[in-house]
Simulated assay, not measured.
Amino acid sequence: MVIKHKVSECQEHILVNDEEHGEILCAKCGRVIQDKTEEAGAEWRSFENQPDRGRTGDGTCLSKHDMGLATIISRSNKDVTGKPLSVGMKNTIERLRMWDNRSQAYSAGDRNLRQAFSQLLSLKEKLGLSDAVIEKTAYIYRKAHEKKITRGRPISAFLCATLYAACRETETPRTLKEISKSSMVKVKQINKCYRILVERFDLRMPLVDPIVCVSRIANKAGVSEKTKREAANILKEYERKETTAGKSPMVVAATAVYIATLKNNDGFTQRDIAQAANVTEVAIRNRTASIRCAIGLA
């Protein structure tokens, strides 16, 4: 920082702020104008000699059973100066770690949340979900847990039901079959818990837009960008002339992608698109005729 400042001793000083030594001095004559200046910024240093100099942990989030507010005792048996602890102190710290771990899930409700949210993080990685969907899932599950709706029901099945509800509310294209396959829970169990969830909370789920599913199916099948745009145009034309309510959005989107590949001669079969969309070939075949008739394709 260079500042021009006029004083009586010198016609013009060019002041330089030396932040390392805490001094303000003149760049011309070298005179120290002020020493022991205070640093107004944040104190950035690490007491553990690590590149991460952050003083705080992760923020609070609903997807952790303790919402991220629990204490964490480090596994390194060293004091603040970096010296190793004595044998007696190591035993004391180890007992503190044990009781700290036990106290975080003392009640049955805490253990329920701990098991459910550990499975939720696993599903997040398998399904490639965003943090917003995970937080919404944790919010719905916590509300159901408070009202004791989860009591007597499988944790995995109810968690998958809340995850599917969160995907529907955030318009994330994930089907029950995909969630069932990733969680190893039967679709019938998830359906049962989902119906209970919708009835108890009186949820109003928005309709899934098939256009949202087009990009996912096309990327998985490996079709070109031109075909994606063509499939989106087909869906817009189909929605304008005929309602898509009551029809599976994934099937409608897969059918639009298949028709677009036929128009562009990409060489994809119904089986390729069906496997990418995780639907049957018969469903695509049946929907192809109705879409062709609606938009006027031969």
Rank of each mutant, 00 (worst) to 15 (best):
M1K: 09
E19T: 15
H21Q: 14
G41M: 05
E48H: 10
P51C: 07
R53P: 09
R55H: 11
G59T: 09
G59N: 07
T60C: 14
T71G: 10
I72D: 04
S74N: 07
N77R: 08
G82P: 00
K83N: 11
G88A: 08
N91T: 12
T92D: 02
I93A: 03
E94K: 14
D100S: 13
G109W: 07
N112G: 12
R114I: 10
S122Q: 11
S122C: 04
L123Y: 00
E125T: 07
Y139E: 14
Y141K: 06
A144N: 05
H145I: 03
H145K: 11
K148P: 00
T150W: 06
R151Y: 09
E171S: 12
T175R: 07
S180C: 03
R195E: 09
I196E: 06
R204P: 00
M205P: 00
M205C: 02
V208I: 10
R216W: 00
R216D: 03
G222V: 00
A232H: 03
E239Q: 10
K241E: 11
T244I: 09
G246I: 05
K247D: 06
S248P: 13
M250N: 07
A253C: 09
D266M: 06
D272Q: 01
N278D: 14
R287A: 07
S290Y: 11
C293D: 14
G296N: 10
G296M: 09
